[in-house]
Design a protein around this nucleic acid. Structure first.
Length: 109
DNA sequence: CTGATGACTATAG
DNA sequence: CCTATAGCCATCA
């Protein structure tokens, strides 16, 4: 089970958050491990996974760092100085359903 | 089995 | 904001 695949475009989630959703309350490091040994052919949105403080988990300037920033920027996620504004881009699983619901309401009006 | 490692996190100074 | 510390836990040598 990879909760990572459920992260919608334009949002990010922390390693701990992913772990929790996946049913592993303290598996933040394991999530990192999984991503590290990730098969490329999976098409998993690994770039939407960042640290709890909103920072990209790579060293600024590294290839991976640039790759992730680029992918995020492309998903309309604003990356400033290697960090993402969690208050704005943090993914909240329930939010999906809410937005969906509201979308329905809007259509009715 | 034991100890080191790391795409982590929370807390304290 | 940054460093130090201490938990955390699957994987590996």
């Amino acid at each position: 089970m990879s909760a990572i695949a459920d992260i919608p475009p334009g949002c990010v989630a922390s390693y701990g958050q992913i772990a929790e959703i996946a049913g592993v309350p303290r598996g933040a490091r394991q999530v990192g491990y999984v991503l590290r040994t990730l098969p490329e052919a999976k098409d998993l949105p690994w770039h939407r996974v960042i640290t709890a403080s909103g920072k990209i988990a790579f060293a600024k300037g590294s290839d991976q760092f640039r790759e992730q920033s680029r992918r995020l920027a492309r998903e309309d996620v604003e990356v400033r100085n290697g960090k993402v504004d969690m208050k704005v881009f943090r993914w909240q699983p329930d939010l999906d359903e809410l937005i969906w619901k509201h979308a329905m309401d809007w259509e009715e009006e």
